[in-house]
Amino acid sequence: MLWISCPTCGERPVGEFRFGGELPHVPDRITDPDAYNLDYVWMQNNVAGITTERWFHAAGCRRWLTLRRDTRVDRVVPG
């Protein structure tokens, strides 16, 4: 199971957190403003590998944090 290290509360189980999504990144090739907005709102990079994401410590300090996770093995990676 995934454990997340919260800057305030320390190492806590994933069940206490809410996943807040990858940091949105619209590809540079999308320059049309409507296409840009569509991508920003709906599309996901859904990376198989290391992603940078936002998490909310819902059952803890109730603060947001940013972490890097390897989605192939579902583990937090340093950095």
């Binding site: 199971m1 189980p13 994933v14 859904n46 093995v73 579902d74």
Partner: peptide, 14 residues
Amino acid sequence: FDSQPSYSRASSFE
């Protein structure tokens, strides 16, 4: 389904 996205097919005790 598990709340966070991933490509892991591991099973969990939870």
